[in-house]
Design a protein around this nucleic acid. Structure first.
Length: 314
DNA sequence: CCAGACGTTGTT
DNA sequence: GTCTGG
DNA sequence: CCAGACGTTGTT
DNA sequence: GTCTGG
C-alpha cells in the first residue's frame, strides 16, 4: 500500500513539507504520490499533522504512429475503396466536390511536419492537417504548440482528455494509408520498419478531427489526431518498450467508426489492437532516421537486410 | 476568484 | 539529462 | 519518433 | 470550453 520510503522535510518545524515518492501503491506499479504536510505545533511536544495524499497513476506510455506512407494516387480508387460509407454524391468520382485529384504519392510522411491528408468522414473525404488543434485554442502560437503533442490520441483516455473528449463523440474519421513506420531499438541502434497489411491494400487508421478558427485572420484549420491502442504481438516484437500501435480498423468497423450513433461504450469497443496475422513488417533504410534527409522517396519502403537483426514474423 | 493547462513521448 | 526541430 | 544542441554578446 | 491548482 505504501511506497517503500518516504522522506519528509519539515521546514523550521512549523509548516510545510512537500514530498514526492514513487513505488507500488494500491497495486499500481510506478505510481507516484505527492504528500503535502501541514504541521501545527501545539505544545512543546504535541504536534498535529495533516496529511493529504494524492495518488497519480502512471501515464500510459506508448510508442506511436508518427509517420505513414500513402501510395494511392488516384482519387477514383480512394473513393471506390470507401464508397459504401460516403454520402451519395461521393459515389460519383467526378462530382465537383471531389478536389483530391492532385495527390502525389507519399512514401514517407512525418506527422511532425503536419502534412495535409485526405480524411474519410461521414460528410465525405476532406483534406486535414495532422496535429489536432482543439477548437478552444486561443491563438496561433498556442495552436502551434499544442499540435506537436496531439499527433496521437491514446484510445484508453480519449473520453477524458480536454482536447479530445468532446470530438470523440462526433468527429471520428479514417486516415487511409498504405503503411506506417515504427522504429525498433536493437543493441542501441534504431532500425525503422515499414508495416502494412498482407493484402497490400489501403487500410484505415482511426482518427478524430476538429476545426479551429484563427480569430485574428479568420482562417480555418481542419486538423486530426491518429488514435492509438495497445500493441498486438507483432508490434510488440518491433520491440520498443512502448507497446502501442495505431488503431487500425477492419473493413466492417470502418463504417461504424465514422457513423454518429455510437455511445461511449460502443466507441471504446472499437478501440482494440488489430490482428497480427493480417499484418507484415520489414526493416527499411536507416536513412529515415535523419529528418534532414529527403525521406519521401521510394527507398523509404524498400526492404533492407540487416544481417545483425533477428527477423520479426507476424 | 483568476491563471494556466489542455498532448505525446521519454527514463532509471 | 532535457529540450527543440523536422 | 529521431538527431542534435546544450552559451553569451551585439544588432535591426 | 472546462478543469485544476493556488
Amino acid at each position: 500500500m505504501c511506497p517503500e520510503r518516504i522522506s519528509i522535510i519539515v521546514n523550521n518545524a512549523i509548516n510545510i513539507g512537500k514530498v514526492t515518492a514513487s513505488g507500488t501503491v494500491g497495486g499500481i506499479n510506478n505510481a507516484s504520490i505527492k504528500v503535502k504536510v501541514k504541521v501545527k505545533v501545539k505544545v512543546k511536544v504535541k504536534v498535529k499533522i495533516k496529511i493529504k495524499i494524492k495518488i497519480k497513476a502512471p501515464k500510459l506510455s506508448g510508442k506511436m504512429c508518427y509517420s505513414v506512407a500513402y501510395l494511392e494516387k488516384k482519387q477514383s480508387r480512394l473513393i471506390e475503396r470507401y464508397k459504401n460509407m460516403l454520402p451519395p454524391e461521393w459515389k460519383d468520382p467526378i462530382h465537383p466536390k471531389n478536389k483530391l485529384d492532385q495527390l502525389p504519392e507519399y512514401y514517407f510522411l512525418s506527422a511532425f511536419t503536419h502534412p495535409e491528408l485526405p480524411i474519410v468522414t461521414g460528410e465525405g473525404i476532406r483534406m486535414k492537417e495532422w496535429g489536432l488543434i482543439p477548437f478552444w485554442v486561443k491563438d496561433e502560437e498556442k495552436g502551434t504548440k499544442i499540435r506537436k503533442g496531439t499527433l496521437n490520441a491514446v484510445g484508453e483516455t480519449v473520453f477524458e482528455k480536454p482536447s479530445y473528449r468532446s470530438i470523440i463523440r462526433s468527429k471520428r474519421g479514417l486516415l487511409p494509408v498504405s503503411g506506417f513506420f515504427e522504429w525498433r531499438d536493437y543493441n542501441g541502434k534504431k532500425y525503422p520498419y515499414y508495416i502494412r497489411l498482407k493484402d497490400h491494400d489501403l487500410f484505415s487508421l482511426a482518427c478524430i478531427f476538429d476545426s479551429w478558427i484563427n480569430k485574428q485572420s479568420g482562417e480555418i484549420i481542419e486538423s486530426f489526431s491518429v488514435m492509438t491502442t495497445p500493441a498486438n504481438t507483432m508490434m510488440e516484437a518491433i520491440h520498443n518498450r512502448k507497446k502501442r500501435m495505431p488503431l487500425i480498423l477492419s473493413l466492417e468497423k470502418e463504417k461504424e467508426w465514422i457513423g454518429n450513433h455510437l455511445n461511449e461504450q460502443e466507441v471504446l469497443e472499437l478501440i482494440k489492437p488489430f490482428d497480427s496475422n493480417r499484418m507484415e513488417a520489414y526493416p527499411v533504410s536507416r536513412r529515415l532516421n535523419y529528418s534532414g534527409n529527403n525521406r519521401n522517396t521510394p527507398e523509404a519502403i524498400q526492404k533492407k537486410n540487416y544481417p545483425e537483426l533477428p527477423v520479426i514474423q507476424s
